[in-house]
Simulated assay, not measured.
Amino acid sequence: MDLPQARERLLARGWKADPPKREPGSAEYLQGIIDAGYPEVEDCSGTGQGFCSFMYRNAAGDRLNLVTAGEYVSASQGGESAWPGGRHAGVTCAGARGSATDAE
């Protein structure tokens, strides 16, 4: 499932984007994804499969981390947009030390 579909499902289930606090200029290499409407992107690997991490939070304070693989390609770069696909999601419950995972 690509990132827009995964995000739509998360938002429909009550999760909200949880953008990290960033120092000015620290996320220049993430700017394309942020500008595309995904400020919750936390970080991306610079090599390999292009893994990226996106953070969400629910009303109870639980955090969900969605990991994607693949590159984001903007339509402004010529052609159609291409989105990374979801690979793994993990939830850390508020106040809990452990985590549960959901690979939906």
Rank of each mutant, 00 (worst) to 15 (best):
V91R: 11
G70A: 01
E80G: 01
G98S: 15
L10P: 03
E71N: 04
G32S: 13
L30A: 09
Q49T: 09
D18R: 11
E80L: 03
G32E: 05
W83F: 12
N65S: 10
D62R: 02
L64P: 00
G32F: 07
T68W: 04
Y72P: 01
T92H: 09
S74A: 12
G98Q: 14
G98C: 11
A59D: 15
V91Y: 08
L66G: 02
Q77A: 11
G25V: 06
N65L: 13
R9W: 05
D102I: 09
A27R: 05
R13V: 00
R9I: 08
D18Y: 09
T101H: 11
S99T: 12
A17P: 04
K21G: 02
S76M: 12
S74N: 14
A82F: 01
H88V: 02
G95C: 09
G79H: 10
H88I: 01
S81Q: 09
Y72V: 05
V41M: 07
R57T: 15
Y38G: 03
L64Y: 08
V41Y: 00
G61P: 03
A60R: 15
C52M: 00
D43S: 15
C52F: 03
G48R: 08
E80D: 14
G98K: 15
A59N: 05
R97E: 14
R22F: 04
G90R: 10
S76Q: 10
I34M: 09
G86Y: 02
D102Y: 12
P4G: 07
T101P: 00
S76G: 06
A94T: 04
N65K: 15
N65D: 11
T47P: 00
P4C: 09
V41Q: 01
Y56W: 05
A94P: 00
Y38C: 07
E42M: 04
M1C: 07
G85M: 12
L10W: 02
K16Y: 06
E23H: 08
